[in-house]
């Protein structure tokens, strides 16, 4: 078989099987090649309003994410967001945003391959994360829509809570740390694997 387009390899491509075999209660799947853009703009500024108009969302405030649309908006800092969109959107989004901003001050940088995204779901996710995350993931403290830049085990991650009681989360991890994090995750699930693991 000949491959027409060059094949891309995501940071966790080699982990697919291991991630598919986690114990019941933890489903893990890499969402490879998502478009990711770092947006830097002063909230409330003309540029921010222009960006919001293009994206059709209000830029979310501290430690939260707007996950409803096609382009997800993750708060990374007081004037910084990570825009996450389906594969292949970087060029057109970048152009749209830069053109909307015009001469105002805002910057957009393509960081799509900087991180990969790991989607975790299942009733054990919160307990597994608690083995390496010092933040309280109780829904009363960290509700759905929370977006935390923190450490998981010893890796910097962006953790987005998508489901009640952290039963569904996104973990965005820098590509170089992805393999470490996968090793940690598979190890942290050992206990729930039963005696066969």
């Amino acid at each position: 078989m000949t491959v027409e387009t060059p094949t891309r390899f995501s940071p966790l491509a080699a982990w697919q099987d291991d991630l598919a075999q986690l114990p019941t209660g933890v489903q893990a799947r890499e969402l490879p090649f998502l478009t990711q853009l770092t947006l830097r703009v002063q909230p409330g500024s003309t540029a921010a309003k222009a960006v919001e108009a293009v994206l059709d969302v209000t830029l979310p405030g501290p430690v939260s994410a707007e996950m409803s649309g096609d382009v997800k908006v993750l708060w990374m800092g007081p004037d910084e967001w990570l825009l996450v969109a389906p594969d292949g959107r970087q060029d057109d989004l970048l152009a749209q945003l830069r053109s909307a901003v015009g001469d105002e001050f805002a910057t957009v940088t393509d960081v799509s391959a900087q991180r990969t995204t790991l989607a975790l779901s299942g009733h054990l996710v919160r307990t597994v994360l608690a083995q390496g995350c010092a933040i309280d993931l109780d829904p009363r403290v960290t509700p759905v829509g929370s977006c935390l830049n923190t450490l998981l085990a010893q890796a910097p991650v962006t953790l987005v809570v998508r489901g009640e009681a952290a039963s569904d989360v996104w973990l965005l991890v820098r590509s170089s740390f992805a393999s470490y994090l996968a090793t940690w995750l598979v190890d942290a699930c050992t206990e729930y694997r039963g005696g066969t693991g």
């Binding site: 080699a14 083995q131 085990a153 740390f177 470490y180």
Partner: peptide, 18 residues
């Protein structure tokens, strides 16, 4: 705890590592 062996310290690798 788990911070031993291959998890002692994060091992960072490039996309060409394998």
């Amino acid at each position: 705890g788990r911070n031993r062996g291959e998890l002692f310290d994060p091992v960072r690798v490039t996309a060409l590592h394998s």
